[in-house]
């Protein structure tokens, strides 16, 4: 990467000209509705809809598909200078060739800059940004709980005949490094923008969990803290090598809580070991491997002490009856506990 170019870029960014795209104003009547806990009637829903459609019209042209090596993700253009914000795991390493696919069919070429793998943020820079390059403003504020947000991206990869699908949701929760929404995400969305009702990029998509409301994004406010390092092409956090050698985490596939001194199971995820063993939501776990337990944390502790593939014996109480089940723990990164299909999938079709 050319050093003088970085300096120019930095100057632009710090001089705020790179974020020149203007936020969209939120009319007073829309503000009144979004300040409510939830909309009460069709008129209020319509006000939200109007604002969402204004934001969608401005945001879709700047939402891009990103192909780096064999990986396909998404991204969002955030500067007329061709800066593209995406996820760290889309960028991978610095100085890789990146293909950036605009919804209008244009295919632009760029290079990866830096990646912060600790929080999963990355930047790309287009080689020759065209003069009419669409781009979005970037939010300064952190996501607010309950805020209405829009998700764009290229789930499943970029398709010629499909604009980036829009999804609407709200900020459900968050921490320093992450924000959780009920905007659904899936493979290919990585790096795509989470946008607020002012049309500003609020976060980039990162990962999902088993439930439909487990959609995780990285707040731009956090990414800004390492902006200069990213621009300079620095890559840090867990490198791929570290990841490969790291241990698998054992996984039972349940969620629960402690209620009245009992470990209550609230969710059992389909296809994961606990489900296969017959554990169901509402069950109370009385003992693990012969030891009595009374909190959900104790169960978590016991799982984390195990290795994937090991067995755990659970004593379960359901409808006043007590029984035992044996769960063979899976590991994240393992294929499934019953993976016969993967091996024996017909090669010759159908």
């Amino acid at each position: 990467m050319n050093r003088s170019r970085i300096t120019v870029l930095l100057t632009c960014l710090l001089g705020s000209s790179a974020f020149a795209a203007e936020p969209i104003e939120i009319p007073a009547d829309v503000k009144r509705v979004t300040a409510l806990r939830y909309p009460r009637n069709a008129d209020q829903l319509r006000l939200i809809q109007q604002q969402v459609q204004r934001v969608a019209a401005q945001s879709m042209p700047a939402t891009v598909g990103v192909v780096v090596g064999a990986g396909a993700g998404s991204g969002v253009i955030i500067g007329s200078d061709g800066l593209v914000l995406t996820a760290g795991h889309v960028v991978g390493k610095a100085d890789r060739r990146a293909k950036v696919l605009l919804p209008d069919g244009r295919e632009l070429i760029g290079k990866t800059l830096g990646a912060n793998h600790r929080i999963d943020a990355g930047l790309l820079l287009l080689d020759n940004p065209p003069a009419d390059l669409p781009y979005l403003p970037v939010a300064k504020a952190r996501p607010k709980i309950g805020e209405w947000v829009i998700t764009l991206g290229q789930p499943g990869g970029t398709l010629d005949d499909r604009a980036p699908p829009l999804r609407l949701g709200r900020v459900l929760g968050g921490g320093e490094d992450w924000v959780c929404t009920d905007c659904t995400l899936v493979g290919g969305d990585s790096g795509g923008p989470l946008i607020n009702l002012q049309g500003e990029v609020l976060a980039v998509h990162s990962s999902i969990g088993p439930d439909i409301v487990h959609n995780f994004h990285i707040p731009v406010a956090q990414i800004r803290k390492s902006w200069e390092r990213l621009l300079a092409g620095e890559v840090w956090g867990n490198s791929l090598e570290e990841v490969v050698s790291s241990n698998l985490r054992p996984l039972m596939g349940i969620a629960g809580h402690t209620q009245e001194g009992q470990c209550q199971i609230t969710e059992v995820f389909r296809g994961l070991p606990a489900y296969e063993a017959g554990v169901r939501p509402g069950d109370v776990v009385r003992a693990v491997d012969g030891e009595d337990i009374s909190t959900f944390d104790e169960v978590s502790q016991k799982v984390l002490q195990k290795r994937p593939g090991q067995k755990m014996r659970l004593k379960i109480e359901r409808d006043g009856e007590t029984f035992r089940v044996e769960v063979v723990l899976a590991g994240i990164g393992h294929s499934s506990p019953r993976g016969e299909w993967d091996e024996s999938q017909p090669q010759e079709g159908p």
């Binding site: 493979g187 290919g188 990962s207």
Partner: peptide
């Protein structure tokens, strides 16, 4: 104890 799946293809 959730399963985080990153969204890259």
């Amino acid at each position: 104890m959730l399963l985080w799946a990153p969204l890259i293809i």
